[in-house]
Computed example of a mutant assay.
Amino acid sequence: MSLTFFTLASATGNSQSRSFRLSAPEALVASGVLKHLLPRFSLKTQVRIELVGAGEADARFAAEGKGTPVFAGLDADWVLVTLTPGNEHVGRFEDWITSEVGRNTIESFQPGGKALFTAAVARQKDDETVVLPGNVVEGEKLAVTHCGRCHMVNEATRLTTIGSSPSFAVMRGFSDWQARFEAFFALNPHPSFTLIDGVTEPFDVSRPSPIVPLEMTLEELEAILAFVSQIPPADLGAPIQYQ
């Protein structure tokens, strides 16, 4: 039997691609810790996790073997094992569960007032800050013009965006943020309305005419990247608290 955790956006068509499959031993499932952890990750990241059998999973929790240490409990030291290398959502879950927020979430699982699991020692992170060259001021203006119709670029666009689109600050917190922004025009739904001079192909003649195109040059994209590189990543928040 599989148990599926949905994000708040799971009813949308896009949520289907923002997911991965996870397996875990029955003892870990029965402890209730996954019902505590997985919805909190999904709520903060909009990535859905499906709990499945071992043969179907993209990642698994294991009580032994090689993997990323995540917590200790139930007389075992648990690791997260990635089964589909390069899966960005598994990578994001790994980053979250080993972060300070993830560690606090693990240790806040206290059924009956007693903690059952202890978070693994925090991993050493690369503190190198990526700052891309370009006109930051111009980049912010261009981002508002071209991207502000859907994404919250800055405080001025907070109330004029599509609520289901992640903000620039949230996306800046993704481990692959630079690659995402550099190649945004190739990531859905952008190809249907984005033209970059000298990079993208002309629109197909069957493209619906009401779609207003987003047109920019590589120089403008460079300025936007410079602006994005200086946005502080969004703090996805502390574990959910209940009264």
Rank of each mutant, 00 (worst) to 15 (best):
R21H: 09
Q46C: 10
P25K: 09
E56M: 11
N14G: 13
S42T: 06
L51W: 00
R40Q: 13
A27W: 04
W78Q: 06
L28T: 04
E88I: 15
A59F: 00
L37W: 00
A54G: 05
L74A: 10
V29M: 12
A76G: 08
G53F: 03
R40G: 11
V47K: 03
F71I: 08
A72G: 14
V90C: 08
T45E: 03
V29W: 09
L37R: 03
S42G: 12
S15R: 13
A59L: 05
P85F: 07
A11W: 13
G13F: 11
R18A: 10
A57V: 00
D75Q: 13
F93V: 01
G67L: 09
S17T: 12
S15V: 10
A76Y: 03
E94N: 15
G32Y: 05
K66F: 07
A62Y: 05
G53K: 06
W78Y: 08
T45S: 11
S15I: 08
S42I: 05
D95P: 04
F20V: 05
T84Y: 06
F61E: 00
V70Y: 03
A54F: 07
R40P: 03
V81P: 04
S15W: 04
Q46V: 12
T68D: 07
S10M: 10
P39E: 02
G65W: 06
N87S: 14
S17Q: 14
R21Q: 11
V52D: 05
T68P: 05
N14S: 15
L28W: 00
S10N: 14
L37S: 04
L83V: 09
A57G: 06
A11E: 15
E64W: 06
P69Y: 02
A24E: 01
E64R: 12
F93Q: 02
T82G: 12
F93P: 00
S23E: 04
A54T: 11
L80S: 01
G67M: 08
V90A: 06
P69W: 02
K35P: 09
V90Y: 00
R92N: 12
A27Q: 15
N14F: 11
F93N: 01
L34N: 02
S23V: 03
L22S: 07
V79Y: 02
N14Q: 15
I49S: 02
R92G: 13
G91T: 04
A62C: 09
E56D: 14
D77F: 08
P39T: 09
V70D: 01
E88L: 15
V29P: 01
A11T: 15
I49V: 14
R60G: 02
S31E: 08
L37V: 06
L38S: 03
Q16R: 13
P25D: 06
E50H: 14
V70L: 08
A30Y: 07
T82N: 13
D95A: 15
S17R: 13
T45W: 00
E88V: 15
V79W: 03
P25A: 10
L34K: 04
A24S: 12
F93D: 00
S31Y: 04
F71T: 04
P39H: 01
F93H: 03
L38G: 02
D58A: 09
S23F: 01
S31C: 10
L34P: 01
L74V: 09
F93W: 05
A54L: 10
V52E: 03
E88Y: 07
R48T: 10
T84V: 15
S17H: 13
S17G: 13
L28M: 07
A59M: 03
R92K: 09
N14H: 12
G67I: 08
L80Y: 01
